[in-house]
Amino acid sequence: MIGSLKVGRRFAEWCAAALMLVLVALVFQQIRDVLAPAGMAEGGPYDNAAAYPRGVAMVLLGLVALQIVVQLVSRGSLNERGFRLDRFTRPAVIILIFGLYLGLLGTLGYHVASAPMLFAIMAACGSRQWGQMIAFSLGISFGLAWFFESQLDVVLPGGIFNLNIPW
């Protein structure tokens, strides 16, 4: 079962180190493929947009290398507690719902997308009091819309239906 797999600090540390290495690699790739051909990677401080990010990227690379050495050396000395992977199912589902909401926000608009998102997250949290959930979803989404739209004059995303409430 995948659910019984354990992940812990050690795994996350490798992920973080990889993330940083990707960042460094992107900086060098962009400097080589975009800034250098545009003439922005040479000359003095007025014309050279690459020197500073390159310098910082080198420092970061050095630090990450050191961190990786530490991770290799301290192998075993770290008391790895670890979490069963299935503990992360609920957060993963909810992040997915939230991501889906952000993706649909531009198309559906705030007023259509928000209450269902709230409702879905409540359901994913395990709530089953449907009536109360509907009331909360609508109440919270319209209450916040009222505050932002009518009190702060913020225009919330209207989506393709151009739904905006003239409070």
């Binding site: 609508l138 151009n162 409430i165 003239p166």
Partner: peptide, 9 residues
């Protein structure tokens, strides 16, 4: 709710 929304806006 959707219908009400469309009606007012």
């Amino acid at each position: 709710a959707l219908l009400a929304l469309t009606a007012i806006s």
